[in-house]
């Protein structure tokens, strides 16, 4: 949700650069372009973290499946 909102704000700023300039000035950032860059970096970082966590969770699920198969097929030599 945060990512979607973030991208909506980003697209709004790209389509209306004067809005970006106004908001940038309010936060003491030198230009609207710099603000758009900072927001983009923050969003991409957030997406990376979310994807990393999802991948880790998937790895855990894969591990459980492989372990279950291994134990099920265990043999005594």
């Amino acid at each position: 949700m945060v990512v979607i909102l973030g991208y909506l704000v980003l697209f709004a700023f790209i389509l209306n650069p004067q809005w970006a300039d106004k908001v940038a000035k309010f936060f003491g950032i030198e230009s609207g372009a710099a603000l758009i860059t900072y927001i983009s970096i923050a969003l991409l970082s957030l997406i990376s973290i979310v994807l990393y966590v999802k991948q880790k969770n998937q790895n855990e699920s894969i591990t459980k499946i492989i372990r279950h198969i291994g134990i099920k097929d265990a043999k005594k030599c």
């Binding site: 372990r67 198969i69 291994g70 097929d73 265990a74 043999k75 005594k76 030599c77």
Partner: peptide
């Protein structure tokens, strides 16, 4: 080896 329990991870 005789007597050993053997488990295999497929990945």
């Amino acid at each position: 080896v005789k007597g050993v329990y053997l488990i295999k991870h497929i990945v």
